[in-house]
Design a protein around this nucleic acid. Structure first.
Lengths: 355, 355
DNA sequence: GAAAGTTGGGAAAACGCTTGACCTGATTCA
DNA sequence: TGAATCAGGTCAAGCGTTTTCCCAACTTTC
């Protein structure tokens, strides 16, 4: 500990130049002969000069710090956005100050003040999804603000959202491209939630002159239990189906269990797909089992970060969306030829036994 | 944006006092009459004075920022430690600067310099577990450093680890308390890894005059596949067992699948337990299915943070351990009375964790 | 009623760096 | 040859606080 830090003044003195010259050389601003540059650099190195970032920030008015206001960092979706943003910012040499509001309004405004006090260069707000507009903080702080995974309640704020509608379309197009036509849709039923996803799905279906096998989507909640129940009822009913699009992965897993328990072959008899893809993260959970759609939340995070780093990369106002990606797994397309059975197959066997 | 910030000087002038008086009042240092205090405070309030934290830090030498150096924030164990630490620090009004080294040595030392440059008040290193000693950075930076979820390679550094030995003991004691005596132990086999956990387990067993049913623990890796395989072999062999302690939860889930696939009842025929408990986080994954031991990694994080906030709370050198907690689930104790227990629940649990 | 203490408050020196104005000598241009 | 240009540097003014002295005016104390 306690090693009296060497200051720029020390370096300047040791190198026989003025303070300002030393500063300019080390920052690459201003002019200096090649010789002087070298001497200053070498001296700084030799003296193990570590610029005091506090002083620098203070003097230059740039903290090289960006604040991230997140509603709930332990929530899986937000945390993916966070990760994407962090990486991008780190790559740009910006440190991040992450404040978790834990859904507490009072805390939130305190935190805005704290970020303002620390003179962060920019703020990224990570919300709880498209359905929860964030109270705009753009005017409470004097730096650029972007909203990721939420909109702000001020329409002119810069926001980034996943393209849920596209996700729905992609799902429909994938299933249609496989020749499936009797497609069921198990979704969540609140007014918001999966609405856009379903809308996109229905649109694409309609463009192909189709509608869900059940007429309307089956609406419940986001749980695997609901998936299990819905699929079971579907099988017990008399609508014939050859595919199911579930609004999220848990529902799809539940549906899968139901299908298998009735001896329905997936994907041969019924193709199954979900949406989220995060169950396959991190590495230890990776699998190529379920066909699903990845809203690319980390991409969303990095895009939002990119905007803050260099606002010219995007329109500086309004909301833009991130295009999702389809991940094809074994629940819509059978492995080619006699692909080696994975240990997952064992599990499937187990499930069969259990029921 | 751009609201020209009001400075302390503005406040002082408006309140008709000197700069220093204003500063003292607002910080509660120095002396001032009650009347002056009130006036200054009121003026600051009225002018919406937001102290420039950068300047303050610069002047006072205290950044009110603690750096967190984490090896891999996307790794579940470290991230729990991180969460615990963050919460504790936030509660103490300290912001955290989180740097993810992503297991890159060069990056790591850059990051240490970055933290030093920013004059953080303390640094918390979050490692990758007891088996990966972290190269001590204590002398590369002039502030207190604590190591959480790892030791440093300098014995005198302050480190915090989970008490793996105690975890093993607790497991044994739980199973013994249930009257089980033919207990198998499926663990991971590297030299380090689960060694302490197993040691504690074997010790406690020995104290009861027992040893594992199989004589020695079954050693493999950390995967559910290994759990499945080991349990299968166990059932195929001729050692009789009435309980299995698995070194982690994935192994336990694999073992569960194997047991169920053979029609073995859990817990009636064989009691099963694991270790980790994190699969049950976050909320949407919570379940009380598997009996397991929680190493209390968030507690570890907050304890380490506590140490940095107030070093007097603990010895200021050496390693200390965090006591784990037992969570009793349905794999060792049947639900009381005739609680409904559909096998569907089990299946869903399996799907959830294995696929 | 003088010495000693206490209380309220101010002046000014850091803190370490950035930055723009300015200076000097050499080179170029007309 | 004189003016204009330019490279290479230096000077000094901030930046917004904290903090260390120091002072004046009261209060006690003996």
């Amino acid at each position: 500990m306690a090693r009296k830090a060497t200051t720029l003044a020390d370096v300047a003195a040791a190198a026989g130049v003025s303070l300002s010259t030393a500063s300019k050389v080390l920052n690459g601003t201003g002019r200096a002969s090649e010789e002087t540059r070298a001497r200053v650099r070498e001296t700084a190195e030799r003296l193990d000069f570590r610029p005091n970032a506090l002083a620098r920030s203070f003097a230059s008015g740039q903290s090289e710090l960006v604040g991230i206001l997140i509603e709930d960092a332990s929530e899986i979706f937000s945390s993916m956005v966070l990760r994407g943003a962090e990486r991008r910012l780190a790559a740009a040499g910006l440190a991040t100050l992450i404040l978790d509001a834990q859904e507490d309004r009072r805390l939130r405004s305190q935190q805005v003040r704290a970020l303002d006090a620390r003179r962060v260069d920019a703020v990224l707000v990570i919300g709880s999804g498209p359905d929860y507009p964030y109270p705009s903080i753009t005017h409470e702080i004097s730096c650029p603000v972007a909203y990721a995974f939420c909109t702000s309640d001020a329409a002119t704020d810069r926001a980034f959202l996943p393209d849920d509608r596209a996700a729905g379309r992609i799902a429909a197009e994938h299933l249609l491209s496989l020749g499936r036509t009797k497609i069921a849709h198990i979704t969540e039923g609140s007014e918001y939630g999966s609405a856009e996803r379903s809308r996109g799905f229905l649109e694409a279906l309609a463009e192909a002159g189709l509608q869900p096998a059940t007429g309307a989507p089956l609406a419940g909640d986001w749980s695997k239990e609901w998936g299990f129940r819905a699929a079971t009822e579907l099988l017990d009913g008399d609508t014939e189906i050859d595919a199911i699009f579930c609004a999220n992965d848990p529902i799809a897993y539940g549906a899968f269990a139901a299908l298998r328990s009735r001896g329905v072959r997936v994907p041969e008899d019924v193709a199954l797909m979900g949406h989220d893809h995060f169950l396959q993260e991190p590495k230890w959970r990776r699998s190529e089992f379920l066909t699903t759609i990845d809203p690319d939340l980390t991409g969303l995070g990095s895009t939002a970060a990119e905007f803050l780093i260099d606002p010219s990369t995007a329109a500086d106002t309004g909301t833009s969306t991130i295009t999702p990606t389809l991940y094809v797994g074994r629940t819509t397309v059978s492995p080619a030829g006699d692909a080696p059975r994975s240990s997952t197959d064992d599990v499937l066997a187990v499930i069969d036994h259990l029921l």
